[in-house]
């Protein structure tokens, strides 16, 4: 097969688009959030999500989330191969509805925290984290 200059350019452009795609696609994250909320609408406010602005190492990114009055909190990484990160359910002896942990991020992306409130409503907070070195191996 003769590869013309035009073909080569088209091929290059499509490969470039494909490599960008995984970090931009948020349909999987939306699906994962919808699974957690059962399709209910999420409002802003009521959840505070603390993430670093720039993470040098995507293998351990410290995140903390605080949602007073929540019964459960889920954290999603919109650009990871699997968007779910953790889901925490709080029992009667939880001192506050807050959790800190360390997560992996594949690249620069949005981290989303969704809290299920005691009255059944859902609240959401989202932060963008810039990742210098991704944490997915490969």
């Amino acid at each position: 097969m003769d590869l013309t200059r035009r073909d080569a350019l088209a091929l290059g452009a499509s490969t470039f688009a494909l490599t960008l795609l995984p970090f931009r696609a948020s349909a999987a994250a939306d699906d994962a959030i919808a699974t957690f909320t059962g399709g209910a609408a999420t409002s802003d406010g009521g959840v505070s999500l603390t993430t670093p602005e720039i993470a040098e190492n995507g293998n351990t990114v410290p995140v903390s989330v605080d949602a007073p009055g929540a019964v459960a909190i889920a954290i999603f990484a919109a650009g990871n191969p699997t968007p779910e990160v953790v889901t925490a359910k709080f029992g009667p002896l939880a001192g506050s509805q807050a959790l800190s942990t360390r997560i992996r991020l594949a690249g620069t992306q949005d981290v989303v925290a969704v809290a299920q409130m005691a009255d059944g409503s859902f609240a959401k907070a989202s932060n963008t984290v810039k990742v210098t070195i991704g944490g997915c191996g490969g």
Partner: peptide, 29 residues
């Protein structure tokens, strides 16, 4: 749990880092 009463129950996915670390608060009645 504390004396059998639930404090927190976390479902963990592969996106949690090596040596999983959790910090949270609990009431001691």
């Amino acid at each position: 749990t504390f004396n059998g009463q639930e404090v927190i129950d976390v479902t963990i996915e592969p996106a949690v880092s090596t040596n999983p670390y959790f910090e949270f608060e609990a009431v001691v009645p």
